[in-house]
């Protein structure tokens, strides 16, 4: 029984939250990695693109709710997501046409593009706050839990509860669908392959008759989709605040770099590495020991490796460690 209790405890506090947060990070990191591998720069504006996607979802949610369209018990955000994606894609393409394209045609250095993306970050951040305001927006509706802790306890008779929030379930399922779609597109379709070819060897891709503008367009379509879904899921799960997305950029970059920049599989792995390390390092192990060790061996104190206050800092620490030990990341990515 103690053993099962321990497993439940780990699932409830590490496994499920880790999978959820990891999926969100992975989707974000995929966006960064794809922009990097095709357009060759680190896009600091990606966090704001995610925020923009989430904002679009919220605005559409309000619209749909005022029209009394909903998907109870699922949150309304699910129905509006496709439309929000289209809006986000449209914004990304617009930004590219007005801003990034100029530097692409000039073959600017990647640092210049990076600084340009900071300009885009400022502008988009301001635009979002201007439209929706800086405050907290909760746009979750419908049933809160797929599985309540109490139901689980009653059902299994265990002391520890296991809860699965609707947002967590949705996040994990949607991420899996999106990732499968993305990999199918990149590996099985002609356009997807041409995108990989372009990122691999730009000159030869041009010689083969691959249209660069089309590749760029598709890159932004994918990026916009990923950003919108990641941003909406994050906002749905943790409530939306424009300010948090700026701080999300770094964990996302960490995930992309840890996995190996330019490598989509790496981005996903990186996302989960970051998410799980954050949870594992800040988890209070006292209770686990309580279940797994005889009583007289259970030590005092919470047994945290680092206090929970440092949760987000862990992603930066991992980032620094990876840069120190293996700058190319887990899956050898392109060295920036």
């Amino acid at each position: 029984m103690d053993f099962l209790n321990g497993i439940t405890l780990i699932s409830n506090y590490i496994l499920i939250p880790g999978l959820t947060y990891g999926s969100q990070l992975a989707l974000g990191a995929l966006g960064i990695t794809i922009v990097y591998s095709v357009l060759r720069f680190s896009n600091f504006a990606h966090g704001e693109f995610m925020s923009f996607g989430a904002m679009s979802s919220i605005l559409l949610c309000w619209l749909f709710l005022s029209l009394e369209i909903n998907l109870n018990p699922l949150p309304t955000a699910i129905i509006v997501l496709p439309f929000a994606i289209i809006i986000t894609i449209f914004y990304c393409i617009l930004v590219d046409k007005i801003i990034f394209k100029f530097y692409r045609l000039q073959n600017s250095k990647s640092v210049i593009n990076l600084i340009v993306s900071i300009g885009v970050m400022f502008f988009t951040g301001g635009l979002i706050r201007f439209i929706i305001g800086p405050g907290d927006k909760n746009f979750f509706d419908g049933e809160r839990f797929i599985l309540k802790a109490k139901t689980f306890k009653n059902y299994t008779g265990l002391r520890e509860g296991l809860a699965l929030k609707t947002t967590q379930g949705i996040t994990i399922v949607l991420s899996i669908i999106l990732v499968i779609l993305l990999f199918w597109f990149l590996n099985k379709t002609k356009t997807g392959k041409s995108m990989r070819a372009y990122s691999d060897n730009k000159e030869l891709a041009l010689l083969s008759g691959i249209n660069p503008e089309k590749v760029v367009l598709i890159t932004w379509i994918i990026t916009g989709t990923l950003a919108c879904v990641a941003g909406t899921l994050y906002g749905l799960d943790k409530s939306y605040k424009p300010f948090t997305y700026l701080h999300l950029v770094l964990p996302i970059f960490s995930a992309a770099i840890v996995g190996g920049v330019g490598n989509p599989v790496g981005a996903i792995i990186g996302g989960f590495v970051i998410a799980f390390s954050e949870l594992i390092v800040t988890f209070a192990y006292k209770k686990i020991f309580f279940y797994f060790l005889p009583n007289y061996l259970v030590p005092d104190g919470l047994l945290q490796i680092l206090s929970t206050d440092y949760k987000i800092a862990i992603s930066f620490i991992i980032l620094v460690l990876v840069l120190l030990i293996r700058p190319t990341g887990i899956y050898k990515g392109k060295i920036i």
Partner: peptide
């Protein structure tokens, strides 16, 4: 290189 340095110092 530059991009990594930027991200590392920010982190």
């Amino acid at each position: 290189r530059s991009d990594y340095l930027a991200i590392a110092t920010l982190g």
